[in-house]
Design a protein around this nucleic acid. Structure first.
Length: 278
DNA sequence: ATGACTAGCACGGCTAGA
């Protein structure tokens, strides 16, 4: 099973590129962020023609997430409030469409678009921290479900120096400040592992290049698009790859896709504990 | 120190992204 994540910066502007990538790579699941479209205008037909069904949580112009899958999709949950019905902050944060999950092939796939925060002095920065605190409560509730879990998306946070092209200059600023890094670590709770780092310890691997600074030409990027796995999925991971070349397309998104390869579902022999079975 | 570029909305410059 292969699960991918890609911030496409408008699914309508990018849908030809998304289709081309789906045809070339054929992931089982593709999670999109920044779809930037209301649900009634989502381009379902283009993806259905390739065998992918989409479940979506969108809004006009901003934010928006979607899960595309060629495997059957069950038990879709939209927003933090789906698991935190009595949490007023979860309900309030639901105004921005940044959270969707689904049950696919025995995996809970959770697709997140974490707020950017803009600048440490912006009112959007405390919003980001509040959102991450709510994510912590949400993941605690999710953990109680005991499901194999893959949390993917655009986290808008580089957790370590090796995830930024110029850590000396950029550490401590937006996307690399201690409070947001700690808030994300607190949410992950030590239970979820950044699978890219299982396979690649070195710096120099980015998932986002700023449009404005000639970042692609200079390869001055950040690694802010992540895939976090629970223990039983991590044990099945055979690779995690950033599809950097996609950033070199004409009219690209500023993010590249990230894909995890899983030997999943596990062999029947490995899970057969039922003595009456055969 | 600042801004760059891209997209949406709507058709003129804003907001927002990261």
């Amino acid at each position: 099973m292969r699960i991918a994540t890609w911030n496409v910066n408008s699914v309508r502007t990018r849908h030809d590129q998304v289709c081309a990538w789906l045809q070339a790579e054929a992931p089982d699941v593709l999670c999109l962020q920044e779809t930037k479209v209301a649900d009634d205008l989502f381009p379902h037909a283009a993806f259905e023609a390739l065998g992918y069904k989409a479940v979506i949580s969108g809004q006009k112009a901003y934010n928006g997430v979607a899960i595309l899958s060629r495997l059957p999709i069950e038990d879709v949950r939209v927003g933090f409030a789906a698991l935190l019905p009595d949490d007023p902050v979860a309900t309030e944060l639901g105004a921005q469409k940044r959270v969707i999950s689904a049950w696919i092939e025995g995996v809970r796939v959770l697709n997140l678009y974490v707020p950017n925060g803009s600048a440490l002095t912006s009112e959007k920065y405390p919003y980001k921290l509040e959102w991450l605190a709510c994510l912590r409560r949400y993941l605690e509730a999710q953990d109680a479900e005991g499901e194999p879990l893959a949390v993917v998306g655009d986290f808008n946070i580089a957790l370590e120096a090796r995830d930024i092209h110029d850590p000396d200059r950029l550490s401590g600023g937006i996307m690399a400040s201690d409070p947001e890094r700690q808030a994300l670590r607190d949410a992950l709770g030590g239970r979820l592992e950044d699978v890219f780092r299982v396979f690649e310890p070195d710096a120099g691997h980015w998932s986002w290049w700023d449009y404005r600074t000639g970042a692609w030409d200079r390869d001055t990027g950040w690694r802010i698009d992540h895939i976090y796995l629970s223990e039983e999925l991590l044990a099945c991971a055979t690779g995690c790859v950033i599809h950097k070349g996609v950033r070199g397309n004409a009219q690209p998104s500023d993010h590249a896709p990230v894909v995890v390869h899983l030997a999943w579902p596990p062999e029947q022999a490995e899970e057969g504990e039922d003595e009456g079975g055969w």
